[in-house]
Amino acid sequence: MVASTLELTEAHTLSFGTGEDALVRIDEPKLSLAGTSAEIHYADGFTQELNLQILGEHQLMNAAAAMAVAEVLGVDRKQAAGALERMKLAERWRMQLDQRADGVFVINDAYNASPDSMKAALQTLAQLGRQGHRTIAVLGEMAELGEFAIHEHDAIGRLAVRLNIDQVVSVGMGAKLIHMGASQEGSWDGESKHFETINEALDFVRGMLEPGDVVLVKSSKSANLRLLGDDLMEVSV
């Protein structure tokens, strides 16, 4: 949509993304618990590897935007990539990955949530699941959706099932439709659970965790699941 309006402006424009005509183009993205990587191609044929410590293929788009701006400002390409690669965390509770002493991984992404960011987080979790990790998604309400709230929460539950997330846990009344959507999509044998309180959800998740599991905690800030994510980092003795 934005690209289609370029002809309406006389301002200097630059592009980034996965399109062949992008000034900074992302190619062959890869994801692991070590971070996110891709080949970055410039319009003049220059190519370099980018290895981000932060998690999620959607972070590559942010990085490409920064590299495009750096290109226009005349920043050395390798220096620009190096600065991005040294960044360990975009912000607390935003795709914040931590490993517990017992080998459980917790991705705390519960500072905010929208349908798009929820989908991106679940897709990241699903990719890690395809690498041999059991996946648990602890999901809370996406706030301020108004008339779209019912549809969007239901859709997230259904998406989690389609992505083969091993366990879905919805928390709070505002997130119950996530559980209902997952159940209607085909999660009939306990793969989706709903809890009204954070403490109930915390006890359930703690009781099922095993080394190598990856837990995603995702909600709007008002749902307070970021605090559940912090509590999950404490290993019960």
Rank of each mutant, 00 (worst) to 15 (best):
S236M: 07
A81K: 14
T5R: 07
S117K: 09
M67A: 09
E200Q: 15
K193Q: 15
M67W: 12
D98Q: 12
T47C: 13
E144I: 11
V72M: 09
V215R: 03
E185V: 01
K176R: 15
E144S: 07
K88N: 08
R92Y: 08
I165R: 05
N51L: 02
E200H: 11
H194M: 05
H194E: 02
P115H: 08
E28I: 10
S183E: 13
D21A: 15
T9F: 14
L159G: 08
S15F: 01
R130K: 14
R100P: 03
K88Q: 13
H153D: 07
N108I: 12
Y42Q: 09
F105W: 15
G157E: 08
K221G: 14
M61Y: 14
V205D: 05
S220L: 07
E7L: 06
I156W: 00
L163Y: 07
M233F: 03
M173D: 13
K218A: 03
G132C: 01
G132W: 12
G172E: 02
E141Y: 01
R226K: 12
T47N: 02
I198P: 00
D27C: 11
L31E: 10
L163P: 04
E85R: 04
A83W: 08
E147L: 06
G172M: 02
T18R: 13
I136V: 15
Q184D: 14
M173L: 09
F204E: 10
V69F: 06
A126G: 06
E57H: 07
L97C: 02
L60G: 06
